[in-house]
Design a binder for these strands. Structure first.
Lengths: 386, 386
DNA sequence: TACGTTTTCGGAAACGTTTGCGATAGTCAA
DNA sequence: TTGACTATCGCAAACGTTTCCGAAAACGTA
C-alpha cells in the first residue's frame, strides 16, 4: 500500500525504474517522481520494553537460560535463577504475551460480542464474564455490534484475527444468518452463546427462562384481574422474542383468554415504537387492561406516557416487564419485573466457555438455564384478595 | 512449572536421574517417581487457522510472495496477486495479528482501565472510546479495577504485557500512588487520563467541569432559596472530589453562606454511607435545606429515604447531583443534575490517545475539558419568583 | 548480439518466546 | 582411575508475518 507523497493517492501510482537500488515511483495525478524511503530509518530503538534477550545480555548468558529461569524449569542452577530474577525485576521485565501466544498457539483471551454495552443487562453480563475470566487467568476482549449484523460479522472476524481462544456471543436483533459463526465452528474454535442464542448451531448456550418468565409475568397480571393483556414483543427475527411471546400466549390460553393480534406488537427497541404501540392500544374501542413488555425500558416509557395522560396504574392498566434495573424500582409506580440476573449469566457463560477451551476434545455442548425471579411491584398490584 | 502427577504440588518435586533421555522426577510428598511426558504429543495439528504458508504451499510459491500479494506491494505480478487473493478467500485466510504485531512492534490495540463497567458513566465512556477507536482501526481491551488499587496495578501490567499501544485510565477511589503509571511513562508509552485524573503526571487529560459543575449546582440551589446546603462529597483520595468540593465551597462563599464541617461528608460510593450521612444531617438541630451530592446514585438513595420519612422535596430539602441517568429523570421528584456527557468524554479521550500514539515524538500533553450541562428538575424547583 | 535495466520472486533474518537436543563439565561409585 | 550418570547450559528451530537483499528471467536498446 504505497501512496503518493504529495496527494496521498494509491491507485495513481506506477513503477518507473530503479534508483540507487530503490524502487522509483510515479504518480500519474501529480506527475511527480519519487522513491520510497524506509519509514523506520529514524527508529533509534530507544525505549523498547525489556526482553528476555536484554536480561541475557546483561548477565552474559543465553536467552534460553533466562527463559528456563523464569519458567520454574528444573534444569537450572539456583544461583543462576536468582540472578535472572533479580535482573528481571530491576529491568521491570514483562513477558511479551504476543510472542508467548504466537509460540503456544493460544492467547488466553476470550472474545465477547454484545449488541450494546450501555444496556445494563449486557454491562452486567460483561462484569460477570470478566470476574470468572480473570480468576481463570484469561483476558477479555469486548466488541459491540450496535445491533448491526454486518458489524457483528466484522467483530467476529476481528476477534478471530486476534486469535482469541474462544467466543462469547449474543446476536443482534437483525441477525438471521449464521454463516459467520458456522465458519468459525468448522475451524474448531469454542463458541458459547448467551441470551440471544441460535438453535440451529451446535454450541453451548446460557439462556434465560424466556418462556417461563413471560408466563409468570402474564399469569401474575391475570391473577391481578387483567383480562385483556397487550404484549410489546421483541424484534421478529430474535428467537427469544418468540419464546417470550409463546410464554405470553400460553398463559392466556391456560386461563381461557383469547389471543388477539391487534394488541400484540413487535418492537425494535426504539422509544417511538413503544409509545406508538401504546397510543394505538389506547385508541381501541376495547382498551387493554394490562401490558406485558419483553424489555423493561419499553415499560418505563409507557408508564411515563400513561401518567402524562392521567391513566391510572395499575387500576386502569397494569404493567409487567422482562428485566430489572434500578429505574424499575425507583419509578412511580414501581415496575413489576422478571429479573434475569445478568451477572450470573456472564459468570456461567464464561465458565462454560473456558471449560470448552480447556477440554476441547471431550466437551459436549449443552444448554444452561439461568432461573429468573418475579419481582412484584406497584405497577401490577391491584388490591384484590389474593 | 512441573507439578506432581498425583498430588499436583510443585514445591515437593526433586530431580532423580534420567530415564530414556527424559528427566526423572520424584515427589517427596507422594513418594512417587515419574517422568515428564511432553503434553503436545497428541496435537495432531488438525484444524489450525490458515496461514500465509498454507496459501504458499497450495500455489507452490514462497510465503514472501504471498505476503507481497496481500499487502498491495508493487513488486508482484498481477496474475500472481489475483491467484493468491483467490486462494486466500477460498481458505478464509485471516492474517494472524499476533505475528503481525510482534513483527511491527505495535498492536493497534488500546488498553482501558476503569473502576466499574456497570456504572452508566463508565459504560458510556467505553462506548465512546470504542466508536472512535474502531473507526481509526484500533481494537480496545477493557479492564475493571473494581475500585481496588492493587487490581488497577495488575490491570496495567496485564495490558502492557499484551503490548497495547496506549493506555486510557480512570483511577480507583483509593489510588494515591502512581508509580505503576510512572513506570510505563518512562518506557515511553502514551497514556491519557480521563475523569479521575492525576495532576502530578505529565499526561494528556480529559476532565469534566468539576469545579464549574458543582458551582452551578450549588448556586442553583442557593437561588432556589436554600441557605444551608449539605454536601455528600466523594472519597478523600480522589482529586475530583476536592475539585467538586471546592466548587461547592466557592458557591457558598460567593453568596456569603458559611461553610460548615458538620454537613460535609465524604462518601465512598456505598449505599449505607449516604443514608447514614443523611440521617446524621436530619438529626441536627439546624437541618440542612439543600443537599448536593457528587454522585447521582447517592442522591437517588437519599430521595427514596426522604420520601419514606415523609420529608417534602424540594420544599423542606432540595437536591442536586453530579451525573445524569435515566433514573434521575424517572424518579419522583425527578433529580436536578449536572450531565457529564460520558460518551463525549470517551470519544475525546480515545481521539487524543490515538493522536498521541501516532505522533509520539511531537505530541504535547494537554488537558481537554468537556463542558457539562445543568438540567433542572423537580428535586430543586422551589416555586419562587425567578 | 550483447549488455544494461526491470520485473518478479525466493531466501533469510527479524520480532520475543519456548523447548528438544546436544555438549560440557562435574559427581560418584566401583 | 575410569566409566556411567547427572547438572547446567547453549544452539537452533518453531510460531506467522514482513522486508531487505540478491538472483533469475524478461525486456529493451545500441
Amino acid at each position: 500500500m504505497i501512496a503518493c507523497s504529495k496527494c496521498g493517492k494509491v491507485e495513481t501510482i506506477v513503477k518507473s525504474g530503479f534508483v540507487r537500488g530503490k524502487q522509483r515511483l510515479y504518480c500519474k495525478d501529480c506527475e511527480l517522481y519519487f522513491s520510497v524511503t524506509p519509514p523506520n530509518v529514524n527508529s533509534s530503538k530507544k525505549h523498547h520494553q525489556t526482553t528476555i534477550v536484554d536480561i541475557a545480555k546483561t548477565l552474559g548468558i543465553s536467552p534460553s537460560t533466562v527463559s528456563r529461569a523464569l519458567n520454574n524449569s528444573l534444569e537450572i542452577n539456583e544461583n543462576t535463577r536468582n540472578e535472572v530474577i533479580r535482573v528481571a525485576n530491576e529491568l521491570d521485565y514483562r513477558p511479551n504475551l504476543l510472542a508467548q501466544s504466537l509460540h503456544r498457539g493460544e492467547t488466553h483471551t476470550i472474545g465477547v460480542v454484545i449488541p450494546d454495552i450501555q444496556r445494563p443487562f449486557f454491562a452486567g453480563v460483561v462484569a460477570g464474564i470478566q470476574k470468572v475470566a480473570s480468576e481463570a487467568g484469561y483476558r477479555v476482549m469486548i466488541c459491540q455490534s450496535n445491533e448491526s449484523h454486518n458489524t457483528e460479522t466484522l467483530n467476529v472476524q476481528a476477534l478471530m484475527a486476534s486469535r482469541v481462544d474462544g467466543l462469547l456471543i449474543s446476536h443482534t436483533k437483525e441477525t438471521n444468518s449464521f454463516e459467520h459463526i458456522k465458519l468459525q465452528l468448522r475451524k474448531g474454535i469454542p463458541i458459547v452463546h448467551f441470551d440471544r442464542v441460535c438453535d440451529e448451531l451446535q454450541t453451548a448456550k446460557v439462556i434465560l427462562e424466556d418462556f417461563e418468565g413471560s408466563f409468570a409475568l402474564v399469569e401474575h397480571l391475570i391473577k391481578q384481574g387483567c383480562r385483556r393483556i397487550a404484549a410489546c414483543a421483541g424484534p421478529e427475527d430474535l428467537l427469544i422474542s418468540h419464546k417470550r411471546l409463546n410464554g405470553y400466549k400460553a398463559a392466556l390460553q391456560k386461563y381461557g383468554l383469547p389471543i388477539e393480534a391487534d394488541i400484540i406488537f413487535h418492537s425494535s427497541f426504539k422509544q417511538e415504537d413503544s409509545i406508538n404501540a401504546l397510543n394505538n392500544w389506547l385508541d381501541l374501542s376495547k382498551r387493554p387492561d394490562g401490558i406485558f413488555t419483553v424489555h423493561y425500558a419499553n415499560a418505563i416509557e409507557m408508564i411515563m406516557s400513561l401518567k402524562q395522560k392521567g391513566i391510572k396504574i395499575p387500576d386502569e392498566i397494569a404493567l409487567a416487564a422482562f428485566g430489572d434495573d434500578l429505574v424499575a424500582s425507583m419509578i412511580e409506580p414501581s415496575l413489576t419485573v422478571y429479573n434475569q440476573f445478568p451477572f450470573t449469566v456472564g459468570q456461567e457463560a464464561a465458565a462454560i466457555l473456558i471449560d470448552n477451551i480447556i477440554n476441547k476434545e471431550t466437551f459436549m455442548p449443552f444448554t444452561k438455564v439461568i432461573k429468573g425471579e418475579l419481582i412484584v411491584r406497584q405497577s401490577s398490584k391491584k388490591n384484590l384478595i389474593n
